[in-house]
């Protein structure tokens, strides 16, 4: 990454294009850089620090299309002070953005391979840029699967888009929920149950996994059973990133700072850490 000329702790101003409600507690916010001219580029998996004046900053993964240079998109679960305020923003209002920061999913390096994307809950958000990329360059990849688990059918993100992708027949999409009522026609069961239902060649597949830590651990076990190597699995870790650039120490995770060495890690690099309590 290039050295930034301005102070990396000072945000750039972006304006809200629109706020889209996704689920009961999740929304997508689209932002436009205020200077209008410069675009914005990021790699799938990276995050930014979003800042609301008077409330503070939060790290949020970018969930939009990497090819869309003029619009910066985030999908956010409204659970804290700042995210609640973000949800209330109206078109035209300004917020601060720092970033993009952090590591990316190995999208390019996965060309020519089977790509399995496993997402749990809001974990689909940082993987959506991967989907945009691989689907745009569909021919460069072998089989592509998306396994997605949420709590209930109401929690499924990007419903329309999932339908659209599903109908393209060039990606194998499986969605499951932990809990559902009688009218639900889809799968019920945790996301790990989906792994046995998809086809991939474990000698050349790559798995990109994002979700709660427990979900990722069980997913990894399942993949190992199917013969995938630790080096072929990637996870996105979560800690409390505050500065985003390794200055503040908050997101330390063993020998890493999640903000600059992560959030995406090759699994073998964090395998030991994931087993340590209170690391």
């Amino acid at each position: 990454m290039a050295r930034s000329k301005t102070d990396p702790m000072t945000p750039a101003i972006f304006h809200v294009k629109r706020v889209i409600r996704e689920t009961e507690d999740t929304f997508t916010i689209e932002l436009i850089p205020s200077n209008g001219t410069t675009g914005f580029s990021f790699k799938p998996g990276q995050f930014t620090m979003l800042y609301v004046l008077g409330a503070g900053e939060v790290p949020i993964s970018i969930s939009g299309d990497p090819f869309e240079k003029r619009c910066l998109t985030h999908t956010i679960r409204s659970v804290g002070n700042v995210t609640r305020l973000l949800q209330k923003l109206k078109a035209g209002e300004g917020i601060g953005v720092r970033g993009p920061f952090g590591s990316a999913w190995p999208v390019k390096a996965s060309q020519g391979r089977d790509v399995i994307i496993v997402a749990g809950g809001i974990g689909l958000a940082p993987l959506r840029p991967v989907l945009y990329t691989v689907l745009k360059n569909r021919k460069k990849y072998n089989r592509i699967s998306l396994l997605y688990g949420t709590r209930t059918p109401e929690d499924i993100l990007y419903h329309q888009e999932l339908m659209k992708w599903r109908s393209q027949f060039d990606i194998d999409i499986h969605v499951t929920v932990d809990q559902a009522g009688k009218s639900w026609k889809g799968n019920v069961g945790v996301v790990t149950t989906l792994i046995s239902r998809i086809a991939f060649d474990s000698t050349q597949a790559v798995a990109l996994i994002c979700g709660p830590e427990v979900m990722m651990r069980f997913t990894i076990q399942e993949f190992r059973q199917r013969g995938l190597n630790n080096e072929d699995m990637y996870v996105s870790m979560e800690r409390n990133m505050k500065c985003g650039i390794g200055f503040c120490g908050h997101c330390q995770y063993g020998p890493y700072f999640i903000c600059k060495d992560g959030p995406v890690f090759r699994y073998d690099l964090v395998e030991d850490l994931m087993k340590v309590e209170e690391i």
Partner: peptide, 22 residues
């Protein structure tokens, strides 16, 4: 290690971001 606090007046018209040792 440090943290940043959001220093606001009551109406949050003026804001200071202050970094302190954490």
């Amino acid at each position: 290690c440090s943290h940043v606090t959001e220093g606001t007046d009551l109406t949050a018209q003026d804001v200071q971001r202050v970094r302190s040792w954490d």
